[in-house]
């Protein structure tokens, strides 16, 4: 089957029930999305599918259809940061960093549809992304800063 990741087409031949996460990581070598739990409890595997946030460990590749996948690598790069990534760096959010691909993908999608989020909304959207290092206080600041930056254009 053909899948579209970060704007490139890939041919993969795998069991249709293989989770997208493992197609990305092991078949395609795209390791930005991480494995943390495999049961949608941590969000480290978060990608965008046609722009919508999805836990790639919960999406079987057969259910992807011809929708387009964006991983953290497709959101931005060290040379061309997405506004959320720039805010994350400015606010020094990451500690071990393992959960942050998922955190950033979650925040980036959310800010597209909720450009001026309240604290309650941020709490509702970001709380299914687990961080064992406890970076939450700076995630909050970075989301708000990114929202502001995106609004300013």
């Amino acid at each position: 089957m053909q899948i579209d990741v970060n704007g490139k087409a890939f041919e993969v031949e795998v069991e249709p029930e293989m989770p997208l996460l493992w197609v990305l990581r092991d078949e395609l070598g795209i390791t930005g999305p991480k494995y943390g739990c495999g049961i949608a409890q941590c969000g480290a595997c978060t990608v965008h599918v046609d722009g919508f946030v999805v836990r790639s460990c919960q999406l079987a590749v057969r259910d992807l259809g011809n929708r387009k996948v964006t991983t953290i690598e497709g959101l931005g790069s060290p040379e061309a940061l997405h506004a959320v990534q720039a805010a994350w760096i400015e606010h020094q959010v990451a500690q071990c960093g393992y959960c942050q691909s998922g955190q950033i993908m979650q925040a980036a999608s959310f800010l597209k549809t909720n450009p001026n989020p309240s604290d309650e909304q941020i709490d509702a959207v970001m709380s299914s992304n687990l961080c064992r290092c406890g970076t939450y206080p700076r995630i909050r600041s970075a989301v708000k800063a990114a929202a502001k930056k995106l609004q300013e254009g």
Binding site: F52, V53, V54, Q58, A60, D63, F110, N114, S128
Partner: peptide, 12 residues
């Protein structure tokens, strides 16, 4: 806020 479908993905 967060679509149920984010984690409860929809089977094709």
């Amino acid at each position: 806020t967060l679509l149920c479908g984010t984690c409860h993905t929809t089977k094709s």
